[in-house]
Amino acid sequence: MLFSRLVGLPVVSLAGGAELGVVRSPVLDAGSGLVTHLRIRGRLRPARKETVLAWDAVHAVGPEAVLVRSAVRSPVPPPRLDVLGRRVLTETGDERGTVLDVVFDPSTGRVLALFTTHGELPAHRLLGLGDYALVVRAV
């Protein structure tokens, strides 16, 4: 599944079927290559603030909605880093375009590959994601 497909999906609680909001952005841990959290934006006007949900609370990711077991908020909010559109830098210090999209396995949250403006990157080349760039291993 693509990150761009995940963004905008409604997040529905298994208990009661209440809609918690829509996915704003997935949070990626570049070191482990896993999606660790989902940033969720409330849909209703008074509740339009952003919340963070740990990936462990996700029951299933479908084409139409994300089902979550409980509405527990993550105790430690992850840094506000969006991987989509981020600059790609090799560990040798050369720029290699920007991230267009990320392919991940919706059942495990594992990142499989990245699409960049300079081509496709396998997930094992990820080194770190920071405020300046996504750093990838040079081959």
């Binding site: 080194l127 920071g130 300046y132």
Partner: peptide, 11 residues
């Protein structure tokens, strides 16, 4: 030229 950690942060 920016000084960047392997974690991707410009310091």
């Amino acid at each position: 030229r920016p000084v960047v950690t392997l974690g991707g942060d410009a310091v």
